[in-house]
Simulated scan of single mutants.
Amino acid sequence: MGLSNQSRSFRTALKAMALLSLVSCTPTGPSGNSCARPDLAFGGDVLLHSLIQRDAATRPEGFAPAFAPIAAALARAEVAVVNLEGPAARNISLANRQIADPGTIYDGRAYTGYPRFNYHPLIARALRNASVDVVQTANNHALDRGALGVDLTLQALAEAGLPATGTIARGTDPIWHVTRQISGRNVAFVACTFSTNNLTNGRSQVLDCYGNRPSIPNLIQTLTNTPTIDAVILLPHWGTEYAARPNARQRRLAQAAAEAGATAIVGAHPHVLQPIETLTTRDGRQVPVAYSLGNLISSQWSLPRRTGAILYLDLARDEAGRTIATNTRYLPTRVERFAGHGVAVSPAALLPDGGASVAHARGVLGPRAVGPDGCLTD
């Protein structure tokens, strides 16, 4: 594809999503499937490699164009959640020390890509402006700028109006969940990670998916038994990078979390899509599990790594009066680099080469894909 065609594709995606955001859809049938506004949206990994940061540093809009084509897709939900894979700590070097402001979004010292990430804190406002409401900060790169980096990341997110789950600042109470009101229900989000890449979690700032201080099942059970909380969503950072299927450890934690009371489980880390399944608990609840939504944005260019999904869920009550997650569906996404706009993520169906990503997503996630208008296409 030529650069001029890429630029036109970017503008086309923006215009189409802006138009679709104004369209009011109606239910499609008695099964409850609809293209009405979902309660929840989940994006995958926000993984800002050096290329993406360099792109942002060249334009006054910073990171905003990277997310502009999917902003309407996230705004469709009452609450949207993404995984911010890496710190957003202002002016912190690889030695975990504060340095002079480099005066740019990317300099290779304070702000770096792989293998130890750190993003300019402007990413927080870009995510908020793209209609993100909650950020997962527990992941294997959470300590890439040490304890200070965790503190400053949470500060940057808070200043942008974004609550975070999965990490805590030094000297604060160990409250691992955040809550949001969704369709009149109080929903708790809990994030955890399987690893911090061998960086020491000496201040216990990052919640361990497989640890016991607290254990994830016990934490979920405590929240489930809290009268003021109606639902618990687990956001685990787990699994094997680039693996197309969940491993046994993921499956065990998913079942344990479901038995403890989790309403839904939405995973991250593999950087490729993994299947969506429904677990049945001993008490008869149906709990959807999305093992991995892949990359929301990165500069990894193979088809499985540039293809992601935005997961949509609704909340309802079952016959026993318990809050459950229903109407699982997803929007396939694709990452491209556009002339004059840099790397951006778009609904795959709006891109000239997006058919390959739509087909890949359907092959992994199965039916119940939605189009850019939010309506089921299957």
Rank of each mutant, 00 (worst) to 15 (best):
L162Y: 08
N197A: 15
A356R: 10
N225T: 11
N96Q: 10
A325Y: 10
G202H: 13
A16H: 03
L157S: 06
N225W: 03
Q136V: 14
V135W: 02
G342D: 09
A100I: 05
A72D: 10
T165I: 11
R109E: 15
I123D: 01
A56Y: 00
V358S: 00
T200R: 14
P65G: 12
G363W: 00
A75K: 14
S9A: 15
R8G: 06
A13H: 06
A320N: 12
T328C: 10
G103I: 08
T222W: 05
A344T: 05
L3V: 11
N212C: 05
T167I: 04
D208K: 03
G108Q: 12
S292G: 07
P121C: 00
V134E: 04
H49K: 06
L157K: 07
L350A: 02
R97D: 12
R249D: 12
C25M: 12
A18F: 07
P163N: 09
R145Q: 09
G146L: 01
N140L: 08
N225L: 13
A158G: 11
H360W: 14
L296V: 10
E259F: 11
P65W: 01
Q221A: 15
F117P: 02
R337F: 01
A169H: 04
L207E: 05
R282E: 12
P217C: 02
C209E: 06
P69I: 04
N201T: 10
G342M: 07
S357P: 02
P288C: 11
P174I: 01
N198L: 13
L207S: 06
N186M: 07
N33L: 15
G354H: 02
R285S: 10
L365C: 02
G62F: 00
S9C: 08
H341N: 15
L127D: 05
P236M: 03
N201F: 04
S93A: 12
L315Q: 08
C192V: 03
A325V: 10
E241T: 13
G321H: 09
S21K: 12
A124Q: 05
A56D: 03
A77W: 03
G161F: 09
P121Q: 06
H237Y: 10
R368H: 15
A244G: 11
S215V: 01
S50G: 06
A290L: 01
F338P: 06
P372F: 01
S21M: 10
I168A: 06
T167G: 07
E336Q: 13
P275K: 02
T326E: 13
E319Q: 14
S302Q: 13
P246M: 00
Q221M: 11
G166H: 04
R145E: 11
P69N: 07
G166T: 07
I216G: 04
Q136C: 14
R76D: 10
T323D: 07
S346F: 03
T137C: 08
S24I: 13
G267T: 04
A130V: 09
G354Y: 01
V335W: 01
